[in-house]
Design a protein around this nucleic acid. Structure first.
Lengths: 191, 191
DNA sequence: CTCGATTCTTGCACGTCGTGCAAATTTGCT
DNA sequence: AGCAAATTTGCACGACGTGCAAGAATCGAG
């Protein structure tokens, strides 16, 4: 992965754009930033920005997407015989080990997310695609498509809820513990 | 409610706009419709459209919002001592009695929804507000805010999943039964 | 009914956005 | 070196959302 110069450069500009978007949005608020601002900051044209992202919201949420994709990948690599919901819980715990919470970029995104509705909408759009991928991975463990789908949906909803509660709270509890506690409360009856 | 002439007219134009948006979007696809088209169809200016809706997506999804708001209201009027999750299931069943499924407008929205990502995003944005309202109503039955929140989230996720499965399926099963079956599979452990 | 106050509609102007297209630049590969 | 493929850029266009002020409709008290 990423041997050629082309791919390397593309990866760099993508990161550069996402970073610029996040930084500027934090400084001035999402509405105080234009796509052109972001492109300038990244040393690239407005048109090129559109070659990478569909809008500033997409750029801002880039790390969030990556994080969830990593989570799906982790679920996929759990031991084969493991119970589906248990695999989800374990993968979540692994994610917090692999990619600890004080990830500055990610937290910056979350703080923005809390305030700005258009970001919430765009994020939710992503989650639909994510739910599809997660279902595909779960189907190995839970052959009933319907149930797998339901698990993916409730699982993601639970994660989202945990993050929301954590952001609203005064930070008196650690995110991993909070999320795991919520996950332990939810049961999706298998076949 | 709606005694004065002013409110009546406003309600009429709102319905008119939402109806026009839905009709045109079905005919030409969402991207083949401009806000101006919708405004014209409703006999109103482009500027006035913006006084009612934030965008064509909002207009198209109007009936969907109403349906979910009705659901929240139904949950609120369930007998006081009823178990929270049971109240949600019962309210859902009531909704299907009160407002039967072959609601042409609503189904039209759903079919559009399935294909068009930007509608999914906007709908998800609405659901965040909905989740807030639903939580407020649930708190009466489940005093632990955290759990109430979690219930609202998983409940809405389950409903969404049911509708999605139903739309994708060849229609071999009735929506109310499908949704209730999914709801029966999910447990959120109270305090 | 009259008339002032309130609310709603409309048109205009402006900055922003996404995208198709074609020219120019950069990179890949032999 | 030099051709092919991929990427960037500028341009132009239609669409969008919104502040603003003028005009029209509605309300309510006398």
């Amino acid at each position: 992965m990423e041997t050629t110069l082309r791919e390397h450069k593309k990866a760099v500009t993508r990161r550069s754009l996402a970073g610029a978007a996040l930084r500027l949005a934090m400084e001035r608020g999402l509405d105080g930033v234009t796509v052109e601002d972001i492109a300038d900051e990244a040393g690239v044209s407005r048109r090129t920005f559109s070659n990478y992202f569909a809008g500033k919201e997409d750029a801002v949420l880039d790390a969030d997407r990556q994080r969830f994709q990593a989570l799906v990948a982790l679920v996929d690599t759990r031991p084969g015989g493991e119970d589906p919901w248990q695999a989800l819980r374990a993968a979540t715990a692994e994610l917090y080990r692999t990619w600890p919470v004080p990830d500055v970029e990610w937290m910056a995104q979350l703080r923005l997310l809390r305030r700005h509705p258009s970001l919430l909408a765009r994020q939710a759009g992503d989650q639909v695609a994510l739910e599809r991928d997660l279902t595909a991975v779960l189907v190995v463990r839970e052959p009933d498509e319907e149930v797998a789908r339901l698990m993916a949906a409730t699982f993601l909803a639970t994660i989202r809820t945990g993050i929301a509660l954590w952001l609203e709270g005064a930070g008196e509890q650690q995110l991993p513990e909070l999320v795991d506690r919520l996950l332990s409360r939810v049961r999706v009856q298998g076949t």
